[in-house]
């Protein structure tokens, strides 16, 4: 079990990490989610031992490893740009960690073949690094990280530089591979879908601070604030004032579960239901095709902007009747 205890790190005037507390249980996959510059990579570098924290500690099964050098931690780290060794072939890269651990040539060879099979690159041992495609390089980097069977596997935006279709395929494969080798995984990404797909728990980072750590379901159900809600892509958010459990949005009054005072009301996509008998009427301004649905930009009668998903293409000027499902309404106070 990994424990990050009150980790802090600054670079000059920039605060990269501020008082981070995070735990990863054995066999669990935790995704660290945040925009660029939120301190995600620094967190991985501190945990892996490549950076020394200014304050706080890193523990493995309750033993302090904060001052243990990187090479003695047995934590694997897959770099964002892979950092494959250009002067070694695929086998030389994948077997590197095993050789460092003192494996014999035949052990190394055997394990390299095994791991290459795991990532779907059987027989590629002798390929040169500069002959690999983007997806292949990614798999080699993953194989290199997994080969020595590290106690903890850390991945820094492992799919960041790949194109969309490849990313969607690989994220599923990654999850299956982690499942098969029963790894403890810390997975850094800025992509909310990626995090939700792979993680048992998601930790949201902002400006070096841990904002919320929860299962994807809990995060979806109850984002801890405006930042998380926006980051999850909930675009219908309105400033309002809560009075006696009610908030008036100007075009609808919705139930809210916050004390009286200013608040932010978020309508998740599942809160807005197209319904011929609905009491709310909106006017379509434009729409975007999203494959399995259309996303309509609409205006309420009081002039508020509202995004609604519709099964057919709405025409500008068209009027749609909707109703609100209270289960999809969130009220946030920060």
């Amino acid at each position: 079990m990994l424990t990050a205890h009150r980790l802090s790190k600054r670079f000059g005037a920039t605060v990269a990490l501020s008082d981070i507390d995070l735990e990863v249980e054995a066999g669990e996959t935790v995704s660290v989610l945040g925009p660029s510059g939120s301190g995600k990579s620094t967190l991985l570098r501190v945990i892996s031992g490549l950076e020394v924290p200014d304050a706080g500690s890193v523990l493995w099964n309750h033993a302090d490893v904060t001052l243990l050098p990187a090479h003695a931690r047995q934590f694997g780290l897959m770099f964002q740009d892979y950092a494959l060794f250009p002067h070694r072939d695929v086998a030389g890269n994948v077997g590197f960690g095993l050789r460092m651990a003192g494996g014999s040539a035949s052990e190394v060879e055997h394990r390299v073949a095994e791991v290459l099979e795991l990532v779907g690159l059987s027989g590629m041992e002798r390929r040169r690094i500069n002959q690999l495609s983007g997806g292949e390089a990614q798999r080699v980097a993953l194989a290199r990280t997994l080969a020595p069977a590290p106690r903890l596997v850390m991945l820094d935006e492992p799919l960041g530089s790949l194109d969309r279709s490849l990313r969607e395929r690989l994220i599923v494969e990654l999850g299956e591979i982690f499942e098969r080798v029963d790894s403890t995984v810390l997975y850094v990404t800025h992509d909310q879908e990626e995090a939700f797909t792979i993680a048992d728990r998601v930790a949201v980072l902002r400006d070096g601070k841990l904002i919320q750590a929860a299962t994807p379901e809990d995060l979806w159900a109850a984002p801890a604030g405006v930042f998380v809600s926006d980051f999850l892509g909930f675009s219908n958010r309105f400033a309002a004032t809560a009075i006696d459990g009610q908030a008036d949005l100007g075009w609808a009054t919705v139930p809210v579960d916050v004390p009286d005072g200013p608040c932010q009301v978020v309508l998740r996509p599942d809160a807005l239901i197209a319904d011929e008998t609905g009491k709310i009427t909106v006017t379509v301004a434009g729409s975007v095709f999203r494959g399995d649905h259309y996303l309509a930009r609409t205006t309420t009668e009081s002039g508020s902007q509202l995004s609604i998903s519709t099964p057919t293409r709405p025409h500008p000027g068209q009027r749609i009747r909707i109703r609100l499902d209270p289960a999809g309404i969130l009220a946030l106070t920060e």
Binding site: G49, G76, L77, F85, H87, R144
Partner: peptide, 27 residues
């Protein structure tokens, strides 16, 4: 020799001396 390569070698268990021998020297 990018610092990344040395870091990658370090997290794979190479000591500083070993990094020099395995990464810097061959290049």
């Amino acid at each position: 020799v990018q610092p990344r390569l040395r870091e990658a070698a370090a997290v794979l268990g190479a000591s500083p001396l070993r990094i020099w021998r395995e990464i810097d020297l061959p290049i």
